[in-house]
Amino acid sequence: MAGGVMRAIACSRWAAVLFAVALAGCSVEVGGGGGTVDAERIASAVSAYLREHVPDVQPGRIECPKDVKIAEGKTFQCTAEVAGTKLPVTVTLSQVTGDDYTYKLTPAKALIDTGKVVTEIRSRLPAQAAGASIDCGTALIRIVEVGGKVPCTVSLAGKRQVVQTVVDDVGGTVHFEPATVWMVTAPSTGKIGDKVTVYGESGDAQLEVTVTRLKFSTGDEFDQPENGFFLGAYVTLRALTDQQDLIEFTAVAGGTTYPSDAIVTSTTFDPPLDPVILNQGEQATGWLIFDVPTRHGQLTLHDANNHQLGTWKY
């Protein structure tokens, strides 16, 4: 059985935007003089562009300020209702000749397609996590300022990891934080002798755990199991980072869970695995003892939050 698997989400930027940042320049002639921008025609142009380039998201009301004086380089903002929120669009005037001018429309915030974000995160997960759910919220379209974040939660088998989608520019280029998605694969399952690597929430490998062998006993004149058998599991722990002690083993037989707290005074299961805190590179070995009703079942490994990390069948 392979140890836990994690997959890096690349630090390179990725586009989740719905349309290009610089919208096409357009020319318009304002009749009637006055030297002011035709707010209604600019609003119509913004609406037309959104309908053309974002056909799945029909814009609502478009509002542009009135009485804006025509001048070379003049900028002002219109506001478009998109997906229930407001998208500011900056209008820049150029090539001004009298009441004639051209303009460029530039969204002031990024329009993010959360469906594309989900697809991108899923494409970067390992094959073992194909069944993971990814939740970026109920809004299909998010309007996010530069530097803003869209949190997405990756979940599988009781384990959760929040991945922040960080917007780098108004063009919708994003990157992910953390750059590494932690192990969200289903709990590793194998046989006695297989190793499991325990990962923390940051995605760092913390501990290697191996159940090297099992031993059964029906007890002696001093110690008798209440359920039928003493099960001893010889475990090896190796710390990959400091301060490692937050794991728990249980035995499962016939649908019932049995903790590793059986007390045996004989030397059948010496040495015991003592509860110790391990620092990087340190190792501990010893027996864990369970009182179980049968020789067939499984051992399970949990973290401090009761997330199942691995299973050894016996």
Rank of each mutant, 00 (worst) to 15 (best):
A2K: 14
G3D: 10
R13E: 05
R13V: 09
E29A: 12
V30S: 14
S44G: 07
A48P: 00
L50D: 04
E52C: 08
H53A: 07
H53R: 14
V54I: 15
C64F: 01
D67G: 02
K69M: 13
I70S: 09
T75S: 11
V82F: 00
T85I: 05
K104W: 04
K104V: 15
I112Y: 05
I112W: 02
A127D: 13
G131W: 01
G131Q: 13
I134Y: 02
C136Y: 01
A139H: 08
L140F: 14
V146M: 10
G147E: 05
P151L: 05
S155H: 02
V162D: 10
V163W: 00
T165G: 08
V167I: 09
G171Q: 02
E201H: 07
E201M: 12
G203Y: 01
G203H: 04
D204N: 10
A205P: 14
L214T: 14
S217M: 10
D223Q: 03
Q224E: 12
F229P: 11
F229S: 07
A233K: 10
Y234C: 03
V235F: 00
L240R: 13
Q243M: 08
D245K: 12
I247D: 07
I247K: 00
V252W: 03
Y258T: 09
S260G: 15
A262C: 09
T268C: 01
T268S: 14
P272S: 14
L273C: 09
P275C: 10
A284S: 15
A284E: 07
A284H: 04
R295Y: 01
H296M: 07
Q298F: 10
L299I: 03
L301D: 11
H302S: 13
D303G: 03
H307V: 09
G310E: 00
